[in-house]
Design a binder for these strands. Structure first.
Lengths: 341, 341
DNA sequence: TTGTAGGCGTTATCAA
DNA sequence: TTGATAACGCCTACAA
């Protein structure tokens, strides 16, 4: 068992191997410059001392931190942060990088938070999530030439590296599933237009309806903000209308929960009297009764690719940015299964 | 708009303010040594240049990494990781520290993961969560003398810094609430004995029952592992018994969800025909219908105190370790409100 | 093929 | 109260 108590320096290794610090450094960073004999002597000393290069010193001199910054999303229901972070950390570790988390101070502007991190030199680049049309972070980082990779497409003039999940495919799958069950009056509860992910999901709904040969009744398309209560209100309104839907597609699980609740309040039973789908496959979706059929995004793969893109970009700054579109999958549960026909 | 294109150094600030680097450093780290006039001149220059100290340089000179390691818990439902992490990061930032995440590689032993991080010298200490009786991490880190602060008491021979939430108070509150509603046959679904947190919650249940003058019927105390399905099975068994409970306390939300599901399957309506309580106040608890009454742990405060303890320990290694016991609060929802009497 | 020296941005020491 | 200077541990020229 080697000593963990004291950090060894490159000088200690040199002394032990009877060579200079430069030679030890070369063994580590440019082995071909060192004779085989010296090299093995040095490696042996490294092993014996349990030497590890000091990260701060290396980073100071190289002006790279070997770490990637991620701004923690604000806490709230409906995120699957754990899966995403786990994969982010795992992949980063594989590449020799660390993930450095940060978050805005109370009342601090989001962009300033990124700037602070850049200025203190804590990270080599950022992984962004939740990007949107005209995302100011994309604007700013592109402008500064500071490396990043984004989860979400946005629409910046110049290309940048991103990964996205095809939301249109998700809602289209939901419609296909519902029409396959025999539903013909299918409603949609979506966000107000103006968000990239929201609009894409609406488009998928329309495409899916067209593909199934179904009409979209404008009365059955509601736009509202995020959240359980909004979903509940939307549900009440739809179910009380003259010609209510038999199935409702939503763009978020919470909206779906709200709709199921509204139905229950009106004496309808979700999963039998009507079908509901969500989006994100949050943990809660599996614990509802009935479970909420929902569109699952491959967050682990998103995280993996994000780090890959980021690391690749750092070592190949000249190359054109790469992008990747992944596909979601509908997870079918009882909120739809027993309905239709 | 100040220039961001190039990182500013302490020397740039000094030049701009017409003082030496040492003075700038003093303004930052020992303001009392600097005259008010000089200080404001320097602060102005800092502001104008958007200067932030370089963390690698600072770390190199301080011979500390200025970062705290946290082993990401394995993904799974039922955690409120986002709140915890947010506060961890926020508090660490306040102290000039960063949070460095890590996770075991596939198949890697948990302890080895910690050892590897120690050897790489990337962190000054750890924040531990989910500690238990004879926690091997506590043993190991105590043995090595490597700094840490734990969420959870464990029972190591020598004292160490920890924060914990009084689980007994949580289950006792649940019982008090239920007995206040008029319930007399109250059941418990808990984990097998052997975990610190589990045993504490059971104790709270018994204490609460005693305080309410109620008998604990051994038939109504079930021990099972974590999870929705386990809860469902336990619920079915309880409700089918000769003399079923009218209320059930659980030590985890998922168990509670399972029990509500079991009840529904048997034609009972949770929140009217029987009461259920959970533990952790996970996001899903609020989205159930009815919402699940649950014990909320002050995770944000836990995280804050953990970092405070850790940082304090790093700068005062000699002092005896501090500890802190926080109190949970019952969040009442419809799974209990309409029941009893 | 190896050794020496300068500098990365800070803080600490000591002199002015 | 302020300024100069020497570390901190590493890497990279460049010299030997």
């Amino acid at each position: 068992m080697r000593s963990l108590s004291m950090r060894q320096t490159i000088r200690d290794v040199g002394d032990r191997a009877g060579v200079s610090v430069g030679t030890v450094s070369n063994v580590l960073n440019a082995p071909h410059l060192v004779s085989a004999q010296t090299r093995s002597k040095v490696l042996e000393a490294i092993e014996e001392l349990g030497y590890r290069p000091n990260r701060a010193a290396r980073s100071l001199q190289a002006r790279r931190t070997l770490s990637i910054g991620y701004r923690l999303p604000d806490p709230g229901p409906g995120t699957a942060l754990d899966v995403f972070l786990h994969q982010l950390v795992g992949t980063a570790t594989d590449h020799g990088f660390a993930i450095t988390l940060f978050a805005p101070r109370a009342g601090e502007d989001d962009l300033d938070t990124y700037l602070e991190v850049i200025r203190s030199g804590d990270v080599d680049g950022f992984v962004l999530s939740g990007t949107n049309y005209d995302d100011p972070r994309v604007e700013m980082l592109s402008g500064l030439g500071f490396p990043f990779a984004a989860f979400g497409r946005a629409d910046h003039a110049s290309p940048f590296p991103w990964v996205d999940v095809d939301g249109a495919s998700g809602t289209a799958q939901a419609v296909e599933h519902l029409s396959g069950l025999g539903h013909r009056r299918i409603g949609l509860v979506a966000w107000p237009s103006g968000s990239e992910s929201g609009d894409t999901r609406v488009k998928g709904f329309r495409d899916g309806m067209a593909a199934a040969g179904l009409e979209v009744d404008p009365e059955l398309v509601l736009r509202t903000e995020n959240g359980f209560e909004r979903g509940r209100i939307a549900g009440l309104r739809m179910f009380k209308s003259a010609n209510p839907p038999t199935a409702i597609v939503t763009v978020q699980d919470e909206l779906g929960f709200g709709i199921m609740t509204a139905a229950t309040e009106l004496g309808l039973r979700p999963g039998r009297d009507l079908a509901v789908t969500g989006f994100d496959d949050t943990a809660a979706a599996a614990f509802m009764w009935p479970g909420l059929t929902s569109v699952r995004q491959p967050l682990d793969e998103v995280a993996r690719v994000l780090v890959d893109l980021m690391v690749h970009r750092l070592s190949n700054p000249g190359e054109p940015p790469q992008t990747m579109l992944l596909h979601p999958q509908l997870v079918v549960r009882d909120s739809t299964l027993g309905t239709g026909r």
